[in-house]
Simulated assay, not measured.
Amino acid sequence: MSMPRLEEITPANFADAIAVAVRPEQEYAVTPVATSLAEAYVHPGVAWPRVIVDGERVVGFLMAFLDVDWHDDGGSLRRSGLWRLNIAADEQGKGYGRFAVQAVAEELRRRGTSEFHVTWHLGEHGPEGFYLGLGFRKNGEMVGEDEVVGVLELK
């Protein structure tokens, strides 16, 4: 791995972005990139989609959420964090996921955010160990029946 970087989605990298596919056993836990980009389109200002690039290769995709009304009720509970993380199947285990989380944390700090939120699906091939290993802690909340909410304090 050289020094990875985040790039905005452009016409030049769009096809590579939507081609990012995780391992088959992980598909239950992630949303395809094309769907994420459609959601980003209908949530401008909230969604922050980026490709993860190493050299000239797109190796993954992430989408952060920024200052979201967490309960979608007009209330005061607003959160920011990682909405999606897809690392290409043959690029996993190389540090790109860790890089992506650190890059989102840096962006959230830059925006003055003190807590970094993420949700993950439970299951044998889910990312729970990955997030807990990065310092996220379960906060006791669930989204739906099978998504855990995790939080990381940003310093």
Rank of each mutant, 00 (worst) to 15 (best):
residue 89 A to Q: 11
residue 82 L to E: 07
residue 108 L to F: 09
residue 1 M to H: 14
residue 62 L to P: 04
residue 28 Y to R: 14
residue 84 R to P: 01
residue 140 G to P: 10
residue 142 M to N: 05
residue 45 G to R: 00
residue 18 I to H: 00
residue 63 M to V: 02
residue 23 R to M: 13
residue 57 R to M: 05
residue 18 I to M: 00
residue 126 G to P: 04
residue 51 V to W: 00
residue 69 D to K: 00
residue 115 E to F: 10
residue 99 F to N: 03
residue 119 T to G: 14
residue 127 P to W: 02
residue 139 N to T: 13
residue 152 L to N: 11
residue 101 V to W: 04
residue 77 L to C: 10
residue 16 D to S: 14
residue 52 I to A: 01
residue 96 Y to M: 06
residue 155 K to Y: 05
residue 151 V to G: 02
residue 65 F to Y: 11
residue 117 H to E: 09
residue 155 K to P: 15
residue 35 T to D: 12
residue 36 S to A: 13
residue 89 A to S: 14
residue 110 R to E: 09
residue 133 G to R: 10
residue 34 A to N: 04
residue 116 F to S: 05
residue 149 V to W: 11
residue 145 E to L: 12
residue 8 E to N: 14
residue 75 G to P: 01
residue 94 K to F: 12
residue 105 A to L: 09
residue 10 T to E: 02
residue 130 F to Y: 04
residue 4 P to R: 10
residue 26 Q to K: 12
residue 11 P to Q: 05
residue 30 V to G: 07
residue 68 V to C: 08
residue 48 W to G: 07
residue 36 S to F: 01
residue 109 R to G: 10
residue 110 R to D: 11
residue 110 R to A: 15
residue 55 G to T: 14
residue 142 M to L: 14
residue 145 E to G: 13
residue 93 G to W: 12
residue 28 Y to D: 14
residue 83 W to M: 13
residue 42 V to N: 00
residue 73 D to C: 12
residue 108 L to K: 03
residue 17 A to D: 02
residue 149 V to L: 13
residue 57 R to I: 05
residue 135 G to R: 11
residue 14 F to V: 04
residue 135 G to I: 08
residue 107 E to R: 15
residue 22 V to S: 08
residue 3 M to Y: 06
residue 155 K to D: 14
residue 118 V to K: 03
residue 3 M to A: 15
residue 73 D to F: 11
residue 142 M to G: 03
residue 2 S to C: 06
residue 42 V to T: 01
residue 38 A to Y: 07
residue 31 T to R: 13
residue 32 P to Q: 06
residue 117 H to N: 08
residue 43 H to F: 04
residue 38 A to H: 10
residue 33 V to K: 01
residue 42 V to S: 02
residue 131 Y to G: 09
residue 130 F to E: 03
residue 90 D to I: 08
residue 89 A to I: 08
residue 113 T to V: 15
residue 73 D to K: 07
residue 126 G to H: 04
residue 134 L to Y: 08
residue 73 D to R: 13
residue 131 Y to L: 10
residue 113 T to L: 03
residue 9 I to M: 00
residue 98 R to D: 13
residue 142 M to D: 04
residue 42 V to L: 02
residue 121 H to V: 11
residue 6 L to M: 12
residue 140 G to N: 06
residue 129 G to E: 11
residue 37 L to Q: 01
residue 139 N to I: 15
residue 25 E to H: 13
residue 11 P to H: 02
residue 12 A to W: 05
residue 105 A to C: 12
